[in-house]
């Protein structure tokens, strides 16, 4: 599974009543921005490496969180990460992210399931953690 074939496959695909708007992100590595219908506000970024298909959504920046609330936010994120379906919470540079990784041999259906779940989870998480924002 590479990004080129994903662009072609996701373009006309429907999964659980959802469609996908795919845009390549310019740069050296193959990265896609994918908006899932009904969750367009939280685009999923996808990249394929030799060992995994990595999908991630930006939630918020560290600077957007009330400094005094950071420890409680971290505790909540760690706890909620385990039961959340197909996704985990993490931090890259100053971005808090929700992400999921799949085997590079995953089927198109599995990738679509991941994308839909991740975009929906991102919205639920944003609304859940809204109180921690500045």
């Amino acid at each position: 599974m590479d990004t080129q074939s994903l662009i072609l496959a996701l373009g006309d695909a429907t999964h659980a009543g959802r469609t996908f708007n795919v845009m390549p992100v310019a740069g050296d590595d193959p990265v896609l921005q994918i908006a899932v219908s009904g969750a367009d506000e939280t685009p999923v970024y996808l990249t394929v490496t030799e060992s995994q298909i990595l999908c991630l959504v930006y939630l918020f920046e560290e600077s957007e969180i009330r400094a005094s609330a950071l420890p409680e936010l971290h505790e909540s994120m760690l706890r909620i990460s385990v039961p959340m379906p197909l996704s985990a919470l993490g931090k890259v540079e100053n971005h808090y992210v929700v992400y999921g990784s799949l085997s590079p041999t995953s089927s198109q259906t599995e990738v679509m399931q991941e994308l839909v779940t991740l975009a929906d989870n991102a919205i639920d998480l944003l609304q859940t953690f809204e109180d921690f924002l500045e």
């Binding site: 992100v25 310019a26 740069g27 050296d28 590595d29 990265v31 921005q33 970024y45 990249t47 490496t49 990595l54 991630l56 930006y58 939630l59 918020f60 920046e61 957007e64 890259v92 540079e93 971005h95 944003l126 809204e130 924002l133």
Partner: peptide, 25 residues
Amino acid sequence: ERVLRTTAQIDTNINSNQSSLSTAR
């Protein structure tokens, strides 16, 4: 390395398409 490169690429892209990354609010 790959995750750092990817997010740097996404950030550059967002910054060139919009004035900045939209806030969580």
